[in-house]
Design a protein around this nucleic acid. Structure first.
Lengths: 346, 346
DNA sequence: TTGTAAGCGTTATCAG
DNA sequence: CTGATAACGCTTACAA
């Protein structure tokens, strides 16, 4: 009593004084290092608790040249960002890992421009704003590999990189999901199965296309009905109209994401088709709406939250210098709903 | 030549040495303060450029007790997170402001649990991880107002708080959008207009409900067909089925978001109704899919990106001690598509 | 076993 | 107008 309770937050000095020891002793004791008597350690711990002292993040950062934060740069045209179910779910997974470790997530959002994107990583690195970054939406010949190597910033990639990835990566296995989807359609009796791909340049777009091709060929079918999409509803609808114009038209279409698939269904209905009888449709993602459109969308579900957890765990291990955990993200699952059925003639 | 180009990043000391001045002079010169000769300043600037020196963020943070970062805590059940178009768009807007200012965005994601949420803000504050936070999804009797006051963390709220908000806030005017929607339906000839509300407890849920009530009453109609929703597709479909069971059923339904509206349309179609003839539907958000479902969804578009920009600008001003800019976020716009028409009997 | 002191890279103060 | 010097709060050698 008597003394004004100072509004200033307690420093290690205060703890030392209260415990009757030196700053150094406090540091050693509270970091669990050897070199201080048990009784003293107890006294120090008690003092710290009394003052509810917590070491200053900034001081530790300065000393250790670390940020205790991880970075994620989302590089997309705004239009695509809002539509993407991956992003929030992925972040939620990342956070669940970081929170316990006292790490934070620094998020940067840039439009698709490579200049801006490069600058974004540069800022992160130069300011030592983060200790490492998560790489999503891998591209073919991804320029970020070089940037980050140059910037000396650790990274973990989400997805199976096309080639020359100097960082650890975790295989999200999207290929298998699309293969299952195609297999399912073939089993239903479909022979003319088209694919509306994702935006070109992305590794996952290529992987999905490849999976579609491979599975068709594995059943002696020729993959010819392909249109490159852009992951937007607009693009999905346009691609669908184009495909329906081919002679003969496909009886089933596999889209690289749900947004294109749902827009595609609308376009098909508008063209006078009955779904799924005259056209079966499969998407990828399993967005919350997928189960609530009519017909309910058959799709390939990705567990983005789990991927976020896995990626974060890996990156944490990497920057902390711990051994890398085994990287086994949750597999995709094929979800059959009502947008697929055996093909029936008009 | 001769000396190994050290891998260590240059400090202000290096710049001072190269320019032949003291550290203090460098600081003054490079921060544009008065007290150094023009020629000296030029020499120092040149030296800094040569070494491509950039002040250490960590050192500045330690000294100034600042983070040069802003925080955003998203508190939602995972299910809702993935479906929300607001979140990515809002962040994009925030980022566009922060990037130029050399500030970063620290993102925290927690499930809906208040305990976890409180802990999240606590960590942010105790670690001085951020200089201020953005508050979205305002709740009625929002507990965060007290937490943040207690934690002494500056904040800016997005939306019009119910009451007692100790922080600056910006009015997103969702009320007006819903009123327009209801007015539109009334003009089309609807008299039994129902509302499927958002999750209870949110200020925007209450505001939308209130707008629906007010506009109906303003036209001499009684707001009786109301069901509290939860922003999910599941909830939207269930509410719709319930409403369609009332006698007589509504001829139009205004939903608190697009996800519920689209799921509601599917439920209505499944119940045998023809849309929009037998049921008009309006949503809120204008998600990318809204224009691509059939019938295309009439909705109230919100410019979340602009709100993000506005909120960030305010919070930056607040933490930098600048005068608060006038807060005028982009107004919502009513987007008429094909899911609304004059009511026609079965 | 404990205390002392140097250093991380800035910025601000205060003599010169 | 300049240039030492002291903080900011912590960790970690090293000395006692």
């Amino acid at each position: 009593m008597g003394s004004t309770p100072s509004r200033r937050r307690p420093t290690i000095e205060d703890v030392a004084r209260l415990a009757g020891v030196s700053k150094g002793a406090v540091s050693i004791a509270l970091n669990g290092h050897a070199g201080v008597a048990d009784t003293t350690r107890a006294r120090i711990t008690e003092a710290a608790r009394t003052l509810s002292w917590r070491p200053s993040l900034h001081a530790r950062a300065l000393l250790a040249s670390r940020s205790f934060a991880l970075g994620l740069v989302m590089s997309r045209p705004p239009e695509l960002l809002a539509a993407d179910p991956f992003f929030p779910a992925f972040i939620a997974g990342v956070e669940s890992v970081l929170a316990n470790r006292g790490l934070a997530l620094v998020l940067q959002v840039v439009d698709g421009d490579p200049q801006t994107e490069a600058a974004s990583y540069q800022r992160l690195a130069h300011d030592r704003r983060v200790d490492g970054v998560l790489l999503t939406d891998l591209r073919i010949d991804d320029p970020r590999f070089d940037w980050l190597t140059e910037l000396d910033l650790p990274a973990v990639a989400v997805g199976r990189p096309a080639a020359g990835c100097p960082f650890p990566w975790l295989d999200t296995g999207d290929r298998e999901g699309v293969r299952q989807a195609v297999r399912h359609l073939i089993a239903l009796g479909h022979r003319r199965i088209a694919h509306v791909g994702g935006a070109p340049g992305y590794v996952h777009s290529a992987a999905r296309r490849r999976a579609w091709e491979d599975e068709l060929r594995a059943h002696g079918l020729e993959p010819e009905l392909f249109i490159a999409g852009d992951f937007t509803g607009q693009g999905g609808a346009a691609a669908t109209r184009q495909l329906l114009g081919s002679k003969p038209p496909p009886t089933a279409i596999v889209y690289a994401n749900d947004l294109m698939a749902i827009a595609g269904m609308a376009a098909a209905v508008e063209a006078g088709l009955t779904l799924p009888d005259e056209l079966s449709v499969v998407g990828v993602d399993d967005i919350p709406l997928a189960a609530h459109v009519r017909p309910a969308l058959t799709t390939v579900r990705q567990d983005a939250t789990d991927w976020g957890r896995a990626a974060a765990r890996s990156l944490v291990a990497l920057v902390e210098g711990e051994p890398l955990p085994t990287l086994t993200p949750a597999p995709v699952t094929f979800v059959e709903r009502s947008s697929t059925s055996a093909p029936r003639a008009h």
